[in-house]
Simulated scan of single mutants.
Amino acid sequence: IAERVGVSCDSVRLISKRYAETGGDVWATVARKERALPPVPSSVTGEVEARLIALACSKPPKGHARWSLRLLEKHVALAEDIPDLDHSTIGRVLKKRNCALT
């Protein structure tokens, strides 16, 4: 059956198991399962991105030649209008918008 349908043997085994568990209900077998937990909304909105990019494009603080991700992380933590973000999240936002720290 797996070869004829073009799926793995495990897929056939799992579908037949689910079919037996649902009492032979085809629609319950192939229907998507309801998520146990709703997806968590991202804390990075368009406004947060804009403020973060503006901060990254601004002049670095005294004593620093340029911004680093960890330095941005510290300054974001101090800003009241931007939620606390990890340096890896900051890096992803800047990479997504093609912003390079110079």
Rank of each mutant, 00 (worst) to 15 (best):
A2E: 14
A2R: 04
E3C: 08
E3I: 10
R4K: 13
R4S: 08
R4E: 14
V5Q: 02
V7L: 03
S8Y: 09
S11E: 12
V12K: 05
R13A: 12
L14T: 15
L14C: 15
I15D: 03
S16C: 08
K17Q: 15
R18C: 11
E21Q: 14
E21P: 01
E21D: 15
G24S: 08
D25V: 00
D25G: 04
T29C: 10
T29F: 00
T29Y: 00
T29P: 04
T29A: 05
V30P: 00
A31R: 13
K33D: 11
E34W: 03
E34T: 12
E34L: 14
R35F: 06
R35L: 11
A36T: 14
P38M: 07
P38K: 13
P38S: 12
P39A: 14
V40G: 01
P41W: 00
S42R: 14
S42D: 11
S42Q: 03
S43D: 07
S43L: 04
V44I: 15
V44G: 06
V44K: 03
T45A: 05
T45M: 04
G46R: 10
E47Q: 08
E47F: 00
V48G: 04
V48E: 05
V48N: 07
E49A: 13
A50S: 12
R51C: 10
R51N: 09
L52S: 06
I53S: 09
A54M: 04
A54N: 14
A54K: 06
A54E: 09
L55N: 05
L55S: 03
A56N: 10
C57A: 14
C57D: 08
C57H: 10
C57Y: 00
S58F: 04
P60V: 02
P61V: 07
K62I: 08
G63R: 06
G63A: 09
H64T: 03
H64Y: 08
A65E: 07
R66P: 00
W67K: 12
W67T: 11
W67M: 09
S68F: 00
S68I: 04
S68Q: 07
R70P: 00
R70T: 14
L71D: 02
L71N: 05
L72Q: 06
L72G: 05
E73G: 08
E73T: 01
E73K: 11
K74T: 12
K74V: 11
H75W: 05
H75C: 07
V76A: 15
V76F: 08
L78I: 05
L78G: 15
A79Y: 02
A79E: 09
A79K: 10
E80V: 11
D81S: 15
D81F: 10
D81A: 13
D81G: 10
I82T: 05
I82P: 04
P83H: 09
L85S: 13
L85Y: 02
D86K: 14
D86L: 05
H87Q: 06
H87L: 00
H87R: 10
H87W: 08
S88N: 10
S88C: 09
T89P: 03
I90P: 06
G91C: 05
V93Y: 00
L94V: 05
K95T: 09
R97E: 08
R97Q: 10
A100F: 06
L101D: 07
T102D: 12
